[in-house]
Write a protein that binds this DNA or RNA. Structure first.
Lengths: 135, 135
DNA sequence: GTAATGGGTTTACTTATGGAAACTGGTTTC
DNA sequence: GAAACCAGTTTCCATAAGTAAACCCATTAC
């Protein structure tokens, strides 16, 4: 496990009294913890993309529509810091770098899957509403 | 179903060709759709809070630590526009307003629950890492 | 030697997001 | 008549987040 990212997180978590909390507060806090890790415009989509298999930097640029190199770089670093993504430099010429989900990263799949499922149902619902409107 | 919010969403969705897409692209798009609906700092926490039952404006202010009236008002409006939250004005003096999840709003529960679950496990993991470090 | 490649970083800029505090408005209690 | 209550809205401001474009470095192909 990485140690660099711990400092920040420990400071954050020390502020909260996670003892003697009721179920509702625990629930809230847990949601916030998850949202902290998944903050930013691209992280969830990045994890979604990597859940289909390892990819190189340029492949990710291509696969995630609209992302700029700066953002990709930044978000990957944060995911790596949290132990969700593993970065491997291959000694090819020129160097290529592979990114893949760690086992811990894969543990986010249920969230991603629920989001994908809901999104599809939502889209169908909206499209249905469109056709009803046209009539 | 509300009609006001449809205009925007239809414009957005019309830009995408959701026919002839592979599974991976569909997945990405669905995730984006969900993230659009849940965008903003407070929406997920708001839904989490309302999933415990209906609440008044001031109760929400109290229950969601750190939220300002302006933000609460804005996020509630967006959730209402998307048909996830129902707003009821009660004719008490002074008026009180009740907010509750619609059935559609409740359909987000699996996502919220997965996030809460992951967040709790993540916190435990980090705390374990803390105690290992101390040794 | 010039261009291209992969994987970035830097700079300069714009926009989105959010926060604090003051204010509105109708009603009711002191 | 003053103050308090609920449910907001408005204004003004600060910072975070994101974008586009240029640049860097080593290497290899033309």
């Amino acid at each position: 496990m990485e140690t660099g990212f711990l400092k920040e997180i420990i400071i954050k978590m020390d502020k909260e009294k996670y003892l003697d909390m009721d179920a509702c507060s625990t629930h809230h806090l847990a949601i916030r913890d998850t949202m902290d890790v998944l903050s930013g415009k691209w992280k969830i989509r990045l994890i979604g993309s990597l859940s289909f298999g390892k990819k190189r930097f340029m492949e990710l640029i291509g696969s995630i529509d609209g992302i700029a190199a700066k953002m990709l770089s930044k978000e990957l670093q944060e995911l790596e810091l949290n132990g969700l993504v593993k970065r491997t430099v291959l000694n090819t010429k020129p160097v290529t770098v592979e990114y893949e989900l760690t086992e811990y990263g894969y543990s986010l799949k249920p969230i991603i899957n629920e989001m994908a499922l809901w999104g599809m149902q939502h889209r169908e619902r909206v499209i249905r509403a469109m056709s009803v409107k046209k009539e």
